[in-house]
Design a protein around this nucleic acid. Structure first.
Length: 162
DNA sequence: GCCAACGTTGGC
DNA sequence: GCCAACGTTGGC
């Protein structure tokens, strides 16, 4: 099982909105970056876990997790002229953009702010900090378990507040 | 194929 | 709102 980090602007789609749709899966669509597209199309698999990252907001950070329930399929929005993600060059015969479906897993009891995570040596190599502007990115197993540990840590030392 | 101009992402 | 980093576009 692989792990991924998906970025979203919470004012557009937040962990709370994902939680509210827990009765059914949510489509992760509108990804218009080729590197991210390649992950969605070729790598993201059913059962993979996803860390939900809030970006472009007051406190950017990891807000919770989800599970992939449907692997890559053509993003319908690329063919919809009314959609903000419409791509006039997209061709149904060879779709350009892909989506996956995810199901809400949990919202962390506290947000894990990126600026704190950045200082954690174990997380220095995260793609999140190595490469900007990538909205779908792989997370190593070590990074994943470390992050979940942080999310569940109940007693933190004052000099250790991540 | 190069590269300048431009657009977008995303932290601050 | 600023700006750095990076991706995309388009002329040549």
């Amino acid at each position: 099982m692989a792990c991924w980090l998906f970025k979203t602007e919470p004012q557009e789609f937040s962990i709370d909105q994902l939680a509210a749709s827990s009765s059914g899966p949510a489509r992760w669509d509108g990804i218009r970056n080729y590197q991210a597209r390649n992950y969605l199309r070729d790598k993201v698999a059913v059962g993979d876990s996803v860390l939900i990252y809030h970006s472009g907001c007051k406190i950017p950070g990891i807000a919770g997790s989800a599970t992939v329930v449907r692997s890559g399929y053509p993003d319908p929005a690329q063919f919809d002229p009314k959609s903000p993600w419409f791509d006039p060059a997209a061709n149904p015969a060879s779709p350009r953009w892909f989506a996956v479906d995810i199901c809400f897993d949990r919202k962390f009891s506290r947000l894990l702010p990126a600026r704190n995570l950045k200082r954690v040596p174990e997380l220095n190599d995260m793609v999140l900090f190595r490469q900007g502007r990538l909205s779908v990115q792989p997370v190593s197993e070590k990074e994943r378990s470390f992050i979940l540990q942080l999310a569940d840590a109940t007693h933190l030392h004052s000099d250790d507040k991540v």
